[in-house]
Amino acid sequence: MHCFWWDKSVELELGDGGKYRDVKSTREAVECLLVRWPRQNGRALAAAKRTCLQALEGKVKSEKARRAFIKAAEEAHIFIRNQ
């Protein structure tokens, strides 16, 4: 079984009023990307969805999924408090 937990979580502002989400795994990242993301288009977003799903299938390392998730957040201008 593959480990989907990240060595370091990514804490970002999702939602109104300075609410932060601490994303600790590829599974949590997929949930954010599919359900909670403010923009549903963008190249980095599409790449992050694809990379995270590949990580869940064991085709790429979780760290690659984490980097793709951060790039998608940057593209969407989501404030990242901790990465």
Rank of each mutant, 00 (worst) to 15 (best):
G17K: 10
A55W: 13
I78E: 00
C32G: 00
A68T: 11
S25N: 05
R43H: 13
M1V: 02
W6T: 05
K59D: 15
D7E: 06
R36M: 07
D7K: 09
E63S: 08
V60E: 09
S25M: 01
R50L: 15
F69Y: 14
H2C: 03
V23M: 00
L56C: 11
F79R: 14
C3W: 03
G15M: 01
A65F: 11
Q40K: 07
C32V: 15
A44M: 14
E57C: 12
K59R: 15
H77V: 01
E28Y: 02
H77S: 12
Q83F: 07
R66M: 06
E74F: 01
R50S: 09
I78F: 02
E75C: 02
R67P: 01
E63W: 10
E11Q: 12
G15P: 10
L34F: 04
K61A: 07
F69G: 07
F79K: 14
E28I: 04
C3V: 11
E74A: 03
L53V: 14
C32M: 12
E11G: 03
K71D: 15
E57H: 10
D7L: 01
E28V: 05
K64M: 09
E13C: 10
C52S: 13
V23I: 08
D16T: 12
E75F: 13
T51R: 14
K64A: 12
R21F: 04
C32Y: 14
Y20T: 11
A73D: 08
A73R: 07
L53A: 07
D16M: 08
L12I: 03
I80Y: 07
T26F: 04
E57K: 14
E63M: 05
F79Y: 11
R21H: 03
F4H: 14
K49T: 11
E28C: 01
L33P: 12
W6I: 05
K8W: 05
I80H: 09
R43A: 13
G18M: 10
T26P: 05
S62D: 12
K24F: 03
G42V: 03
D7C: 03
F69A: 09
G58N: 10
A47L: 11
L33T: 05
C3N: 11
Q83I: 08
F79M: 09
K71E: 15
K64V: 04
K59N: 13
A44L: 12
W6H: 08
T51D: 15
D16I: 09
K59G: 10
L34R: 07
G42K: 08
A68W: 14
E31H: 08
V35G: 00
G18R: 08
R36Q: 06
T51N: 10
E74Y: 04
L34H: 00
Y20D: 02
E13H: 06
G18N: 15
V30W: 06
Y20M: 13
R21N: 05
D7A: 01
Y20E: 11
F79L: 10
I70G: 06
A29I: 08
I78M: 06
A68E: 15
N82G: 07
R36W: 06
A73F: 10
L14A: 11
E13Q: 14
G17R: 15
D22M: 04
R43M: 15
R66L: 12
K61L: 09
S62E: 12
R27L: 07
A73M: 02
R39K: 07
L56E: 14
